[in-house]
């Protein structure tokens, strides 16, 4: 564990908590892509199957349980409890365009052709693009509430901080996982445009609004 990894994890944790609290307290999931949330649930479940096979640490297990739990709580709030506030019309990204290529890629490029390893690899590939329906939704509506922007910023920062963690681990521990690194770069790059808008607008107290 190093400071970059810990910051990344805390940023990730903050993101999922912000999202659940935002939906719960405003009693609304307007502006949130249910499709991205479904993809994240798939990511967590397929990646954290090792919860039942490998024990790493109490920290590791607790975080995994929280991520899976928060993800399912979000889906329950969006598709059941506050269903009426879910903005279907703007959440029109076709997730099969992300699922099919990531499944195929995981079957082709993995470290070991075992069920757990292929599912882990699939979850890494899928996570790198899982935010696209959400970014697509923001671009369709042309704006995002500031709390949604904070959520996106925390969620995007997490993989960026992991990149620093991987650089550190490469030098300090001679440890690297190429699949995670390349996917992490892709994932972080997808947020760049958003980061720019967040820093230039949201942090200056303005609403995140895309140029017309």
């Amino acid at each position: 564990m190093n400071i970059f990894r810990l910051s990344g994890d805390l940023s990730h944790l903050l993101a999922v908590i912000i999202l659940v609290l935002k939906i719960w307290t405003t009693r609304s999931c307007a502006g949130i892509s249910g499709k991205s949330q479904i993809l994240f649930a798939i990511v967590y479940v397929t990646r954290y199957l090792d919860l039942v096979t490998t024990f790493v640490s109490v920290y590791n297990t607790s975080m995994k349980v929280i991520f899976i739990g928060a993800s399912f709580a979000t889906i329950y709030l969006m598709y059941s409890k506050f269903k009426a506030t879910y903005d279907h019309n703007h959440d029109s990204f076709r997730i099969e365009f992300l699922l099919a290529p990531t499944v195929i890629l995981a079957l082709l490029i993995n470290q070991k052709f075992t069920v757990l390893e292929v599912l882990w690899t699939f979850s890494i590939y899928l996570e790198s693009v899982a935010i696209l329906p959400q970014l697509f939704m923001v671009s369709k509506t042309g704006e995002a509430e500031s709390i949604t922007s904070h959520y996106l910023f925390a969620l995007g920062s997490y993989r960026g901080l992991y990149l620093l963690n991987w650089i550190y681990r490469y030098y300090a521990e001679d440890h690297y996982e190429l699949i995670a690194i390349v996917s992490g770069i892709v994932q972080t790059v997808l947020y760049c445009d958003f980061f720019y808008l967040y820093i230039t607008k949201v942090l200056k107290g303005k609403k995140l609004q895309l140029p017309a």
Binding site: R5, D50, T54, N60, Q111, K112, N165
Partner: peptide
Amino acid sequence: SIFNDSHDEL
């Protein structure tokens, strides 16, 4: 190593 069996990250 690149063929590390346990993925210790989240």
